[in-house]
Computed example of a mutant assay.
Amino acid sequence: MTVTVRDFRPADAEAWVRVRRAALPYMVTTPGQVLYDLARAHPGRRYRLLVAEEDGEVTGTAQVGLSHDSPVPGQGFCNVYTDPERLGRGAGSLLVARAEEYLAEAGARSVYTWVPDEPADRAFAVKRGYEPRRPAHFLHLDLANGTLPPLRDAPPEVELRSAADFADDPRPLFEADAEATADEPSDTPAELADYDDWLATTWHRPGFDRALTSVVLVDGEVAAFSAATTDGLTRYGTAMTGTRRAFRGRGLAKLAKNDSLHRARAAGYTDAYTGNDAGNDPMLAVNTWFGYTVCATEVRHVRTLV
């Protein structure tokens, strides 16, 4: 039984999602999203998908590229996941080697990767020269059986809307997203400066649910938001919850997220997922208030390419 690595093909989309869901069930992923992300990636991202194959079956996946929106040049990323039932057969090692080779050719000086916080996974990364950095948590909320905080009336100057209301001009949401993203704790901070790229990779991305994305306006200005992604079936994910700097400390992020979660449950979604940097205490406190619990942890690792 020989494991080989090759480029992703459109026909692999269903198998890709199967492997990712088996290895990382806390992410909301669909075949349509995988195909769209590859087709619409920014040229500067040098985005590439790889698959490991054994006896004609996809057993591993890798997302590879450059962090083109980071102010620090030369930062690459490589996220590898193997079918849990096919571990130890070499798929992960082959994917990492091919990804590093590609990134070196693309001009990367360092490679960042997310590694499950399990002894075997962390040992796999360290053995290949990766050093641990900051952890992040996946969190889960049982929408079907859990209890959400009750909806509360907004103050007179505050209005709740959905992203669908901004269909004619989503730029105010882009500006709020850019400000919130700039303040997120990360080893590879991002700067959202390209509106057209944001439209392509966020606003028009399959799975981005405008109807369930809640937006808080204060005196008519976008102040906070909670962006929702869905698989169109049962799974709901929070892509980002953020508040613009001038409006922080007023509970507006809670207001937006609570509104989105209630509408997601009413729409029939049964499981809600989100992710937080382990050092993001304010957002972790918000999610604990909603009833989310940590279901897994990953640790960001980095390797310097010679």
Rank of each mutant, 00 (worst) to 15 (best):
M1G: 10
T2A: 14
V3R: 09
A11P: 03
D12W: 12
W16E: 07
V17H: 11
R18F: 01
R18W: 04
V19L: 13
V19N: 10
R21W: 06
A22E: 07
P25I: 02
P25V: 04
T29D: 09
T30N: 07
T30E: 06
T30Y: 09
P31Q: 14
P31G: 12
V34G: 06
L35V: 14
G44E: 07
G44F: 12
R46K: 15
E54T: 06
D55G: 14
E57D: 08
Q63P: 01
V64Y: 12
V64G: 08
G65I: 04
H68A: 14
G74L: 12
F77S: 06
F77L: 09
Y81K: 05
T82K: 07
P84G: 01
P84N: 04
P84T: 02
E85Q: 14
E85S: 15
L87W: 10
G90M: 06
S93P: 00
L94E: 04
L95S: 00
V96L: 14
E101K: 14
A104S: 13
E105P: 04
A106M: 13
R109T: 08
S110Q: 13
S110V: 11
Y112M: 03
A120M: 03
D121Y: 05
D121H: 15
R122P: 01
A125N: 08
A125M: 03
V126I: 05
K127Q: 10
G129F: 12
A136S: 11
L141V: 00
L141T: 00
A144H: 11
N145G: 15
P149A: 11
P149W: 13
P150Y: 14
A154G: 02
P155E: 09
P155I: 11
P156S: 07
V158F: 07
L160H: 02
R161V: 09
D169L: 09
R171L: 13
P172A: 08
A176L: 13
T181W: 11
D183V: 01
E184C: 06
P185A: 10
P185I: 05
P185Q: 07
S186P: 10
S186C: 08
S186A: 15
D187Y: 06
E191N: 05
D194N: 10
Y195G: 00
D197N: 14
P206I: 12
R210E: 08
L212Q: 04
V215E: 12
V216N: 08
L217A: 08
D219A: 15
D219W: 10
G220N: 06
A223Q: 03
S226L: 02
S226I: 00
S226K: 02
A227P: 00
G232A: 04
L233F: 13
Y236H: 05
Y236G: 01
Y236A: 01
R245W: 09
F247N: 02
F247A: 09
L252F: 12
L255F: 09
L255G: 03
A256V: 04
K257H: 10
S260Y: 04
D271N: 11
G275V: 04
G275F: 14
G275I: 04
N276D: 13
A278D: 10
G279Y: 11
N287P: 05
N287A: 09
T288D: 15
W289K: 07
Y292R: 03
V294G: 00
V294L: 01
V294M: 08
C295A: 02
E298C: 01
R300P: 00
R303K: 15
T304H: 15
L305Y: 05
